[in-house]
């Protein structure tokens, strides 16, 4: 058998770019599990995961639980305890299906706002908020997930468009510097 396979990300070459006040990192290898609400008992999974659509929370095992659509959650990170009840709750592993980038820094909002069709001002997208939006005309999931008090966004898209998105965000940042 061949040696252990290596994970290939969506971005070619360097996996991190930065500009004045922002940096953009490819975090696509992080595990991503899509979890649906239980078929039989409405609210069971939501109760277990603790957040509704539009919000996120960090589970005790460090996994970021994002309410990405009504009745749908995306669990980001290595799980050890945040797996939902098995009965009826459909889960689909999307680790390989989604590109995931982290845009961080004091200028991160300016960079993202330039190419995002929705209002991401503080009141409209506070820390912990999760939404679907068009970024550079691509359907994306945005999760505001500040790091040590600094503005930070997780931006997820179809994996195949990840390279395009990475370049579009870098370009939007460049035009501000």
């Amino acid at each position: 058998m061949p040696e252990q396979a290596e994970f290939t990300g969506p971005v070619a070459g360097t996996r991190e770019v930065s500009g004045t006040g922002w940096s953009l990192r490819d975090q696509s290898p992080i595990p991503k599990l899509l979890v649906y609400e239980d078929f039989e008992s409405d609210g069971l999974v939501r109760g277990h995961l603790g957040v509704a659509f539009g919000a996120s929370t960090t589970a005790p095992d460090g996994v970021l639980v994002c309410g990405v659509r009504p009745g749908e959650w995306l669990l980001l990170g290595e799980r050890s305890g945040s797996v939902p009840p098995a009965s009826g709750a459909v889960t689909v592993d999307l680790t390989h299906g989604l590109a995931m980038f982290r845009l961080t820094g004091p200028a991160a909002r300016h960079v993202l706002a330039a190419v995002c069709s929705i209002d991401i001002a503080e009141a409209m997208l506070p820390n912990g908020a999760v939404c679907g939006a068009s970024v550079a005309r691509l359907a994306c999931t945005l999760a505001r997930d500040d790091v040590a008090g600094e503005h930070s966004y997780l931006i997820l898209s179809q994996r195949s468009a990840g390279r395009y998105l990475f370049e579009a965000l870098g370009d939007a940042g460049g035009s501000r510097t």
Partner: peptide
């Protein structure tokens, strides 16, 4: 159909 938002 909320294509780029909630998908509903």
């Amino acid at each position: 159909y909320c294509r780029l938002g909630c998908g509903r």
